[in-house]
Amino acid sequence: MPGSVIGITLPYGYPGQISRHGDEISRTRPVDAASGNIMFGGPVIQNSTGTVTAFGATNVASDFAGVAMRKVKSAKVYPYQNYGYYSANEPCDILLRGGVSVKCAWGTPSVGSTVYIRTAVVNGTSPSGAAIGDFGASNESGNCIALTNAKWSSDIDARNVAELTILNRQGV
């Protein structure tokens, strides 16, 4: 077997996968009936009704309740089980505190740096593929908000997946 088949770096897993055990706090909440899909590893907000929705353009940092966790469930579309989602009215597992793998859509995260969520695309500018509700690692004034209770815990791997740590819970 040639030595080139053995990698020298490991990827950080799939979005929504718990990355550190022992400090995680999670809850299961139903996805709001009017919500769009909540992707594994995507930021969520908790509504006053106890349901959750995907983080959107009108949300602020204090709305951030956690990250949708990647859990074993039947595949919506084979073979994309690692990049799945929660649909309306389904139970959604949310990480409220702890480490989780997420996609970093723009910027280069470093340990301890600020986590941003895209809330707009001002003047049509946006890094390639970055959408509203994506996590990022650089401030684009007017396009994103900074989270006050989360930090990056790693750099990115070849698939733009990085570890994010939620420092304290904001959801119930």
Rank of each mutant, 00 (worst) to 15 (best):
G3A: 09
G3V: 13
V5G: 10
V5N: 08
T9V: 13
T9R: 06
L10H: 14
Y12I: 08
Y12C: 03
G13I: 10
S19I: 06
D23R: 07
E24A: 02
T28F: 08
R29F: 14
P30V: 07
D32Q: 02
D32M: 00
D32V: 00
A33G: 13
G36H: 04
M39V: 14
F40C: 13
G42A: 15
P43M: 14
I45P: 00
S48N: 12
T49N: 15
T49V: 06
T51S: 15
A54S: 12
G56D: 12
A57C: 04
V60C: 04
S62Y: 03
S62F: 04
V67I: 15
V67L: 05
A68C: 02
K71C: 11
K71I: 14
K71Y: 08
K71Q: 13
K71L: 12
V72I: 01
N82Y: 08
Y83E: 06
Y83G: 08
Y83H: 12
G84H: 04
G84P: 14
G84Y: 03
Y86E: 00
Y86D: 00
S87D: 07
P91K: 07
C92I: 04
C92N: 02
L95H: 03
L96M: 13
L96Y: 06
R97T: 15
V100S: 03
S101M: 11
K103H: 10
K103D: 05
K103L: 12
W106T: 04
W106H: 09
G107V: 07
T108R: 05
V111K: 06
S113M: 02
T114S: 10
R118E: 10
V121Y: 02
V121D: 13
N123M: 11
N123T: 11
G124F: 15
G129D: 02
A130P: 08
D134T: 02
D134S: 11
F135Q: 07
A137I: 11
S138Y: 13
S138T: 15
N139I: 02
N139E: 11
E140Q: 07
S141D: 12
S141F: 09
C144N: 14
A146C: 03
L147N: 01
N149K: 10
S154L: 00
D155M: 03
A158Y: 03
A158E: 09
R159I: 01
E163W: 05
T165V: 07
I166E: 02
R169P: 00
Q170E: 12
G171F: 14
V172Y: 15
